[in-house]
Each structure stands twice: as C-alpha cells, then as structure tokens.
Design a protein around this nucleic acid. Structure first.
Lengths: 162, 162
DNA sequence: GTCAGTGCAAAGCTTTTGCAGCGCG
DNA sequence: CGCGCTGCAAAAGCTTTGCACTGAC
C-alpha cells in the first residue's frame, strides 16, 4: 500500500514536471505564431498556469503573482486568460457560481472535477471508463461535440463525518 | 418517422403537464411546511419554473413575468431562487459563464445539457446509459456524491454547417 | 395586528473597457 | 521606433443588501 502511494506520488511529480515545460512552451510558441508578443504579464500568467495542477480563479492568479513580487494588474490577468481561452490553450470552468475558474488544456491530463458542497474545495479526478461512456453518449446525441465537462458534488474527505 | 415524432411530442406534452402540477404543488407545500408564506412574487416564480421545461436565467424569469403583467422586482426573483435552491427544489447551473441559470429539480425528468459553442443555446438531453456510467464512476471516486452535472459543448443543429 | 415578503434603489462583486505610457521585436 | 502590451482607474454587468411598506395568515 505504501509502495503504491509512493509510486503514484513519484509519477505525479514527473508528469507535472514534464507537462509544465511542455504546456508552457506550447502556449508561448502558439501565441507567438499567432503574431503576439510576450509581455511580462502574459508570460507570468502562462508560467503560473503551466505550473498549476488544477483550476484557479483570476483573483487567485493575480494574488499569487503579486505575492511573488510581480506588479501585475488584474486586467492583464483577464486579458491573458481571454486570449489563451480563444486559442484553445485554457479552459474556463464555472463551478463555483460566483467566480470563473481557469485551467490549462492538456489532452494528456484530461480530467473532471469534484466540488465539495460544504467547503467548496475543488479536486480533479480521472476515470477512463467514464470518458468512454461520455464518448458514446456524445455520438448518440447527434451533435458535433467539441468538449465536455463533468462536475460531481458531494462532501470531500475533510468535510465528511462518517 | 412522422409517427415517432408525433408520439414523442404527445408524451412530452403529457409529461410536462403532469410535472408542472406536481412540482409546483410540491414546491409550494414544501415552502409552506418550512414556515414560509406565499407572496405574489415567490408564487409567480414557482409557477413559471414549474411550467418551464429547461433552465432560465434570473433576468429571463423577471422579463417573462413582467411581460405577463406582474410588477415583480428582480430582487424578489433572486430571493425566491435562493430560497428554492436552499430547499433543494431548484438547481443553479453555471454554463453560460456570465449569468447563472436555474431550473426545477425533478427526479422524474433528470437530464443534462448541450450548449452551443456558436449561439449559446442550451438544450436538454437524457441518456440512461450515461447515467449508469456516472453512478459507477461516483462509487469509484469514494466520495458521497449528492449531485452531478454534465455539459456537452458543440455546434447545435442550426449553427452546424455540414 | 404582526411580521414575512416585496419593490425600489443603492451597494458589492467580478469582469470589461478606456487610456496614456512602456517596452518587445 | 512603431504598435502591441501593460497597469491603473473607471465603467459595466450580475447579484445582493437596506429599507420602508404591503399584504398573508
């Protein structure tokens, strides 16, 4: 059991490291190809999202970058996110209701979300059998589906009282 | 083919009629049991949602009620929706990003949503096999899942150019 | 008659837009 | 060295709150 946890942990670190480099570079290259320059604000947002495992709100991104010493404006965060979303590099998710969440689009790390009904915490989960069922359902509805989102709501481990 | 459409249509009408009465009365009774009175605004929102097949925004509900002659305030719409959501009678959905959508919770009409990436139109769909897969995935994640939401995004029939 | 419910108006939030100046290429 | 990007501030929504008054029970 401990071995399995340890292995999962190591794999997580490796995968995160690989993906951080890959997605960040992909995003920077993709925007440059589109004729965009790399200002300090946009680059900072891209690097943060590349290092971030799961979704974050615009406010969280802004706060984190300012804590890191950058004098970035919230408007630049929103503009960077808008551009990245239009380029298909970032996905906007509305789970919390009042604020939008953003996360990088990375096919190798496709996942969905668990939202705690008590504390609001968001966790990612991967389930290949659910993906398969989604693909089948998508072909059944007859539309050309480009994307899908699944949110499961319930009490998280910390909030549940057994 | 025509027969099938006709049958589906008839069933839809019947089901909608049955559910309108049922959900509306359930909601009114439920709130009364909770010690709430039935003011004109709250009753109007409940009756509209009971008659509504799928989700609507607070603004749409407000506009529709005012078009119908009621002098209801937008604040009362939000307050009614908040109360209904807390009672588990209404579900708040964030699909459009900028505005929240609300729809009645009716186990007999459980469904998910298709959102057009072009025009933003929302359509409901029912897929029992997907529901089954979701239930299995929910048991796999280990949480006590209370609710789930699925959104499929793609071009709707009107916006798709074959 | 009491007090929950209501409409209006003002405030609070998140997000967008305007604008002058900086700095990437 | 031009024009795209940026930070700040103001504006623009959506949603919530304050308040006096109405009407349900």
């Amino acid at each position: 059991m401990r071995m399995r946890i340890s292995l999962t942990f190591t794999m997580g670190i490796l995968r995160a490291k690989v993906c951080r480099v890959t997605w960040t570079e992909t995003a920077l290259d993709s925007l440059r190809s589109g004729g965009h320059r790399h200002g300090s604000a946009r680059r900072a947002v891209i690097e943060l999202l590349g290092a971030e495992a799961c979704c974050a709100s615009a406010q969280e991104i802004h706060d984190r970058l300012r804590s890191g010493g950058a004098s970035i404006g919230i408007a630049s965060v929103y503009r960077a996110l808008e551009l990245l979303e239009a380029a298909g590099l970032v996905q906007r998710l509305d789970m919390a209701g009042d604020v939008a969440m953003y996360e990088r689009v990375d096919p190798s790390q496709h996942h969905h979300h668990l939202v705690c009904t008590d504390c609001g915490r968001v966790e990612a989960f991967v389930d290949e059998r659910l993906e398969s069922a989604l693909r089948k359902a998508e072909s059944r509805v007859g539309f050309d589906i480009e994307a899908h989102e699944v949110v499961l709501r319930g009490a998280c481990d910390d909030c549940r009282i057994d």
